[in-house]
């Protein structure tokens, strides 16, 4: 009897001891920051910096970029904390640290809030408070406006929420120049306009996933055909918008060529997505558009980076 009660007490002590102990590995905490999204944030922010003439110290620019990356990661972490319930039912997200049981929701919340506050304060101290305010707004917009409000209530979720993902070039420009100019606003507009065709192409392929999770993505609410039309409409706006840096003079010859060819590529695929509506070919072309859209945005920004960061800028006019 006494042995039985002893083992019962021991098991209770053990469960109490481990209940408050994190089970997550360092890699799980890193995964909470959505490293791939963070890479995109760093990449677009870096381009926002290099296209903006400034005489800021490289170390200040580097730390600013680091804080923008940490802020982006923090908003990804808070998004995972809020969306843990729907992540658990979607094949694409069910292995994330919270639904997989590796990290407790409370830990993710504390981690995300700490990084958010820390990144904003350090960015303010290192660069300026305009940039810090814009970073705080970006985190707020992604976590509160997109994740908590729009994502589960409207089919326009990723259209409006896309603004958060498009803001890093503006934050970065503010960090190195102290102001926001039309150049970074154009970069913002390109990412903003790119987001709907990119995500809706994925949503066409993964509509079952979103349906199960109860997220009102465009294909589930308005139907696949309406989504195809909207993909085409946004792409028609995106392709010429991609040429705007050339018109404003900060996109050089190489950029003009890439934007032109890439824009036609996006348009051709969007037309195919609009035309092919049944069976395997329809899914395949939607997947192709999703993949090509990533390449398109990457090439646009990489070309600007090479032109401005490595001295390859050749003006189109004059």
């Amino acid at each position: 009897m006494s042995t039985m009660s002893n083992s019962l007490v021991e098991s209770q002590v053990e469960s109490l001891a481990t209940a408050g102990l994190s089970q997550g590995d360092v890699s799980d905490f890193f995964a909470l920051l959505k490293p791939r999204v963070m890479f995109l944030v760093v990449f677009t922010a870096l381009v926002g910096m290099v296209v903006s003439p400034s005489n800021v110290h490289p170390i200040v620019a580097f730390v600013s970029l680091l804080m923008i990356a940490v802020g982006g990661g923090a908003s990804g972490c808070l998004n995972m904390w809020w969306d843990a319930d729907i992540d658990a039912v979607m094949t694409r997200t069910r292995k994330r640290p919270i639904p997989a049981g590796k990290i407790q929701p409370g830990e993710a919340l504390a981690f995300g809030v700490t990084l958010s506050v820390g990144s904003v304060i350090i960015l303010g101290l290192v660069s300026n408070w305009l940039a810090a305010g814009l970073l705080a707004f970006t985190i707020f917009f992604y976590v509160v406006v997109y994740s908590m409000w729009l994502k589960r209530t409207t089919q326009q979720n990723i259209v409006i929420g896309g603004a958060a993902g498009a803001l890093p070039p503006i934050v970065a420009q503010a960090a190195v120049t102290g102001h926001v100019s039309l150049d970074s606003v154009v970069l913002f507009a390109i990412i903003f306009m790119w987001t709907p065709p990119h995500f809706w192409a994925l949503a066409l392929v993964k509509s079952g996933d979103y349906e199960r999770a109860g997220i009102p993505m465009m294909p589930n609410v308005a139907g696949p055909d309406a989504t195809r039309f909207q993909i085409l409409a946004y792409t028609i706006l995106l392709a010429p918008l991609g040429m705007a840096p050339v018109a404003l003079g900060f996109g050089g010859l190489a950029y003009a060529l890439i934007a032109l060819i890439g824009g036609f590529g996006m348009l051709a695929l969007a037309v195919q997505v609009y035309r092919l509506r049944q069976g395997e070919p329809a899914m395949r072309v939607a997947q192709q558009l999703f993949g090509f859209s990533i390449l398109y945005l990457f090439l646009l920004f990489a070309t600007l980076l090479v032109e401005h960061g490595f001295g390859f800028f050749r003006p189109v006019f004059g």
Binding site: A17, L21, S22, G24, D25
Partner: peptide, 22 residues
């Protein structure tokens, strides 16, 4: 002491890597 004894080697390793990262 009881708390430390209840951690498995795997949990101890994870806690150590977390502490090092911090």
């Amino acid at each position: 002491r009881k708390r430390h004894q209840s951690l498995t080697p795997e949990e101890q390793k994870r806690r150590r890597t977390r502490s090092l990262a911090l």
